[in-house]
Design a protein around this nucleic acid. Structure first.
Length: 422
RNA sequence: GGAGGGGUGCGCCGAAUGGUAAGGCAGCGGAUUGCUAAUCCGUAGCGAGUAAAAUCGCUUGCAGGUUCGAGUCCUGUCCCCUCCGCCA
């Protein structure tokens, strides 16, 4: 969400933003509705003012005002409904240094670390390794859970837990507060984060709506979060913080659920694209100052890079182009980690500055030093996404003898250095 | 899951025969006095409006209905509490 005043004052900039972000939205229609809305408010407010002056017993006078007021209020409610739903689609503006282009081919690689290993034997992918070493059971996973179901077993399960515990300790040491947030969430949290209305199909809805005697469904639907971000942000919804409390640095650990409705036939094998997985996600709330939020964007990116470097996994950093970033994003990086079986880098991290776009939706404010209320800036970044990072570890650390080395930094949690342990 | 009670100005408490949301506490701002503080004044949010004000409107968990007028009456819904049942 953006300030309507900003849209009014910068219609051309907004149209251009929609264009470069591939968003089909009629800005003129919003401005038209805004104008009608304000005219109706003026009329209804003055009628209501008259209505409020009515004394006891002046029934006829009241009825006359009501006759005039009712159609205006009905029209206003219609206009506001339409206006509000369009306002939810208004994208955030983008940073000046964001590459402009319609799709991911315009993304820009800005950094690369580590050399993909040259194997002097025929490598296996994580699916084969998982089968051979009894680490991953996809067959039974599908039987139990359906398409994209999986079991992680033995050392793979331990490795996943070790990775989580490792990054939890790292993040805590860096001053982020750990949170285990709810994953069953209400609609407002997903509207607030910006996942709705854009990606509604990708989110699982749960809690069957109840039925009245007449058969109408009425109960409030609930959803399974695809990341802990909406849940972490919603913690602050409707709150007014003080500048002293900022920045707020937290990280959440949760199971994440994705319907992958738009991905049929894509990445159908292995652990790359799943309906449920565990992820550690960091969120920062800071002052309404783009220099400051951009600084945090870089800092979060560096934390992710540091963790990959500790794990000795080659990666590259991509700056995402306008056409490939979500509506709410101001600036965005992805990190891709080397996955030998793909003979390529695969996306493992996503780092975004949302400026005040989410804060407006969720009404998260703070009182600045001058005593004025302002919306915070929000940011989110992947600390580690499981089991995608497991793919990278299993494949990059595989040995000629079919076993797998454990990254040095994780050995202390596991108590063994090679999979299978013996 | 069953029975009952409740939700009042972004914090806590709390009043209002269907007649236009008192009051107190906390916090914040200011004044004054100075001994771990007291006293006094101001201060809800959102929207329309304005150069800024003034001013007007809306908001009693949320959505709708009845009415000239709803915190109050009606319907639905969300949440909290008590008891019973079930339960990791």
């Amino acid at each position: 969400m953006l300030d309507i005043n900003f849209i009014r004052q910068n219609p051309d900039k907004m149209k251009e933003t929609c264009r470069v972000k591939n968003i089909d939205l009629n800005i003129d229609e919003i401005l038209k509705l805004d104008k009608e809305r304000r005219e109706l408010i003026k009329k209804t407010d003055s009628l209501r003012a008259e209505q409020n002056k009515i004394k006891k017993g002046e029934i006829e006078k009241g009825r006359k005002i009501k006759t005039e007021l009712k159609p205006l209020l009905e029209r206003l409610s219609l206009v506001e409904k339409e206006y509000n739903s369009l306002m939810l689609l208004v994208p955030n503006i983008v940073s000046d240094d964001t590459p402009v282009g319609p799709d991911e081919t315009y993304n820009k690689e800005i950094y690369r670390w580590g050399e993909p290993k040259n194997f002097d034997f025929k490598i296996k992918d994580h699916i084969q390794l998982g089968k051979d070493l009894d680490l991953i059971d996809l067959k039974q996973g599908v039987k139990t859970s359906g398409f994209r179901g999986y079991y992680l077993k033995n050392e793979a399960a331990l490795l996943e837990l070790a990775l989580i515990w490792h990054v939890v300790l790292r993040m805590t040491a860096k001053g982020f507060s750990p949170v285990i947030p709810p994953t069953i969430i209400r609609e407002f949290a997903l509207i607030g984060s910006g996942h709705f209305p854009f990606d509604r199909n990708e989110v699982y809805q749960i809690a069957n709506p109840g039925r009245l005697a007449d058969g109408n469904k009425i109960k409030e639907p609930l959803f399974l979060g695809g990341t802990s971000e909406p849940s972490l942000l919603a913690y602050f919804a409707g709150k007014t913080l003080t500048e002293k409390e900022l920045p707020i640095k937290i990280f959440g650990f949760s199971q994440c659920y994705r319907s992958e409705a738009g991905s049929y036939g894509k990445d159908t094998k292995g652990l790359y694209r799943l309906h449920e997985f565990m992820k550690v996600e960091e969120v920062i709330l800071c002052k309404n100052d783009v220099n400051e939020s951009n600084k945090w964007l870089e800092e979060m990116r560096e934390i992710s890079q540091e963790i990959l470097e500790e794990l000795e996994l080659p990666y590259r950093v991509i700056q995402i182009s306008t056409g490939d970033m979500g509506a709410g994003k101001y600036k965005m990086y992805d990190i891709e980690t080397w996955m030998p079986s793909r003979n390529n880098y695969g996306e493992t991290h996503s780092d975004s500055n949302m400026t005040d776009w989410q804060a407006r939706r969720l009404n998260i404010k703070y009182i600045d030093e001058k005593g004025e209320k302002r919306f915070v800036h929000t940011l989110n970044n992947t600390v580690i996404a499981l089991p995608r990072i497991l793919i990278a570890i299993l494949e990059n650390y595989q040995r000629k003898d079919g076993r797998i080395d454990v990254p040095k930094v994780l050995q202390k949690y596991l108590g063994f250095k090679i999979i299978p342990r013996k």
